[in-house]
């Protein structure tokens, strides 16, 4: 029982703190590429505390509030179902498929909240975000399917154990490099970084979903960003990089996954929506399908 309590409290907390680090890394890397200093170390925390400490909090109705709860709740749930070193409590109760669908709950919540703000920019942003989801999820799903076929299970704990049993040579990235590469491209789209940043697009739709978010609503979005980067990093690490043996290695892998994305993002512009779909359905999907074929052939 106590282990469950520890899971429920510490896993989201660790995810949040790690996510803060990931956000800071993203901002710092970007600053370095843009040849400037970048934000101070505590900047992500300052931003979130500042937003929560706003003295007026504008709401656009109950659904707007509920969406924030769904957003945080969905991601907290996702964190609890992730296998991380030392805490696997609930990863066995729901598998990889469950996890992928749980991650859609906060997205749906956000979409509903943005819709209830009644701002056309927000609605267009959600329309683009969902379109982007359709674009990047197909290669991602192929990668996940291929990995599950290769491991013969969707149980996250077992996936990690299978990879750790054989050392780095048995990591997904080594045994199925094509799937891992296709998945990495899809993960880049999932993080919403350029060139796939079509749903924030400040110059086009004025930051889309965030357009009416203020105060703690915006703060929740900042927290969501932390969770999102962490969750994506962990899922990719679990599937293809052998999961976590211990915390230092594990975090290094998660940071590496996110780093690849944030390092290449700054030299690209933003695709148009249809270009992104075409690209995603051409390259990562093709690569992942080739990887899937290899897995099936074995």
């Amino acid at each position: 029982m106590m282990s469950y309590v520890a899971d429920f409290i510490f896993m989201p907390l660790i995810a949040f703190v790690t996510g803060l680090g990931l956000v800071l890394m993203a901002r710092r890397v970007r600053a370095k590429i843009e040849r400037r200093v970048g934000p101070p170390v505590l900047q992500p925390i300052y931003d979130i505390v500042k937003l929560y400490a706003k003295k007026t909090q504008i709401s656009h109705g109950i659904m707007h509030d509920l969406s924030i709860m769904m957003l945080l709740g969905g991601f907290i749930t996702a964190e609890i179902f992730l296998p991380v070193p030392g805490f696997d409590g609930l990863a066995g109760e729901g598998d990889l498929i469950t996890l992928i669908y749980i991650m859609m709950v906060p997205m749906l919540g956000l979409a509903l909240g943005v819709g209830s703000c009644a701002n056309p920019n927000g609605s267009i942003g959600i329309s683009r975000a969902l379109t982007a989801m359709l674009a990047y999820d197909i290669p991602f799903i192929i990668a996940v399917t291929g990995a599950c076929m290769a491991y013969g299970t969707t149980n996250l704990i077992e996936i990690v154990q299978i990879q750790q049993a054989g050392g780095p040579a048995s990591w997904g990235a080594a045994t199925m490099p094509l799937l891992a590469f296709g998945g990495l491209l899809a993960v880049h789209g999932m993080m919403g970084k350029e060139p796939f940043e079509i749903y924030i697009a400040p110059a086009e739709i004025a930051t889309g979903p965030m357009v009416e978010m203020s105060g703690k609503y915006m703060g929740a979005l900042f927290i969501m960003q932390c969770f999102q980067l962490y969750t994506i990093g962990v899922i990719y690490t679990t599937l293809f990089l052998g999961g976590g043996e211990n915390w230092p290695f594990f975090l290094a892998k998660v940071f590496a996954v996110v780093f690849i994305s944030v390092a290449v993002t700054n030299v690209y512009g933003r695709f148009k929506t249809d270009t992104m779909i075409r690209w995603m359905w051409k390259w990562p999907t093709g690569i992942a399908l080739a990887g899937l074929a290899l897995v099936m052939a074995n």
């Binding site: 400037r36 970048g38 934000p39 504008i58």
Partner: peptide
């Protein structure tokens, strides 16, 4: 805000809509 003076190093960054701005 750009590279030469870089106001982000003291935590100032541009935001798009009045809802998010201070």
């Amino acid at each position: 805000i750009t590279s030469r003076f870089d106001m982000e190093r003291v935590g100032v960054s541009p935001m798009v809509t009045p809802r998010q701005a201070d």
